[in-house]
Design a protein around this nucleic acid. Structure first.
Length: 403
DNA sequence: TCTGGGGTCCTAGGACCC
DNA sequence: TCTGGGGTCCTAGGACCC
């Protein structure tokens, strides 16, 4: 089951899940060889969380998504680096291209992991196990970072196997070994089981994947809902109907785009909040215009000092990518909350229901000057391209926000 | 200990239409 | 006079993933 060249077994396992080891931290250390033998944490500012920690830092208990304050306390001598997403994206793209040399069936899940279906490549490139080992060697040669691979006949099992392979290894789970592999695992390891669902299952006395497998379907569905209940039951038996799906093309854009920001300190200052809403609206619509999409539903998200979070949304008659329209909608939603001196930790703006801009036909309203705004946005975009995104401040709009 | 920022999907209720 | 069920859209919230 573990990293052995069991060629026969792996030939029934066409699905590879490749997961880079401590990706952000590994890339950061690659740029800073002097930090090779030092605990390294990649993470945000004072109110941020750990994005990635190298294995030296993990020995101190530092882990992903942990508040930075706690991570520093656990490992005071760790070097903390700011994330450099441009570099991360560049390395990620190169790695994905390496995968595509083996098979076109590559489905990136994030910057640092992907599913590969190698069933079409075995004749040319050998067993899935040897393909996995070749890929790992190649990624290390080209990028200087390690990755781990899970090899199985389904996506869900491959993903669990890669976790078991870490760091810097390959684990094959052939079909006959699937339940033996799965059933001892903790329920929380299953894809789709987070903290809340794990608690719910634990209350029922279900702690292992094997427990799930031997619980009647109806009981599971009563506990966690019909959809999730059925999925968990199937996953517990290693059944996963999904296929590797190469990324959406331009005809099928992301479903939503958004941006949010945690304030350096909680604030109840309406002007500060609205200025942030404007900045976020500009950021989101700028990305939408670059991706040539427009959307109809604007969602405002507000997180209070006590961390409770609410959302308010409004669906417009027509899709838009116009900064001012998204800002106006979000600002109106904020005003409608009628907050009195409530201290906010975070605000966010998201646009949903995205469609390719080419499919949007703006209705012409006689006498309306709407088209001035798209024109102004394009000018801002061009200036941002030439001079950087801070060159044209959206705050200029605030002074003119008469309506 | 004190909790980021980018997303996806599901559920549930109410409106509205047939 | 009393009583339908289904489908779709909108809104809000929540869980989850990396």
């Amino acid at each position: 089951m573990s990293g052995q060249p069991c060629g026969d077994a792996s030939s029934q396992c066409p699905i590879l899940h490749v997961d880079m080891d401590a990706f952000y931290a590994s890339v950061a250390v690659r740029e800073r060889p002097d930090l090779q033998h030092v605990p390294v944490i990649v993470g945000g500012g004072s109110r941020g969380v750990v994005l990635s920690a190298n294995y030296l830092a993990r020995e101190y208990g530092v882990g992903s998504a942990m508040p930075m304050a706690r991570a520093r306390r656990l490992c005071p001598r760790a070097v903390v680096l700011q994330p450099d997403f441009e570099t991360f994206s560049r390395v990620s793209s190169s790695v994905m291209e390496t995968f595509r040399l083996v098979t076109p069936a590559v489905e990136p899940l994030s910057l640092d992991e992907a599913f590969l279906d190698v069933s079409g490549a075995v004749r040319r490139a050998g067993t899935p196990y040897s393909i996995a080992e070749n890929l790992r060697a190649r990624v290390f040669d080209e990028q200087g970072i390690t990755c781990s691979v899970g090899v199985a006949s389904t996506l869900a099992v491959a993903k669990l196997a890669s976790r078991r392979a870490k760091p810097d290894g390959t684990v094959v789970v052939p079909p006959h070994a699937v339940t033996t592999f799965l059933h001892p695992l903790d329920v929380g390891e299953l894809w789709g089981v987070g903290e809340k669902t794990a608690q719910m299952l634990n209350r029922l006395g279900l702690t292992s994947v094997g427990d799930i497998a031997h619980t009647p379907l109806a009981t599971l569905q009563r506990a966690v809902g019909p959809g999730l209940g059925a999925r968990l039951h199937h996953l517990a038996w290693g059944e996963d109907p999904r296929a590797v799906t190469p990324r959406r093309g331009p005809d099928e854009p992301d479903r939503s785009m958004g941006a949010d920001e945690t304030f350096g300190r909680d604030t109840d200052d309406r002007e500060v909040i609205l200025r942030e809403v404007l900045r976020l609206s500009a950021k989101v619509t700028g990305r939408m215009r670059a991706a040539e999409v427009a959307g109809r539903t604007v969602t405002l998200r507000v997180r209070f000092a006590d961390f409770t979070t609410i959302t308010r949304s409004k669906t417009l008659p027509e899709a838009t990518d116009v900064t001012r329209e998204v800002y106006r909608t979000a600002a109106d939603l904020f005003t409608a909350l009628g907050l009195q001196r409530a201290r906010l930790r975070l605000v966010g703006v998201r646009v949903e229901g995205l469609v390719p801009r080419s499919t949007v036909h703006r209705q012409l309203v006689l006498g309306a000057r709407e088209h001035d705004w798209p024109e102004a946005d394009r000018a801002v975009d061009r200036a941002a391209l030439r001079f950087g995104s801070t060159a044209v401040r959206p705050a200029a709009l605030i002074g003119r926000s008469h309506r």
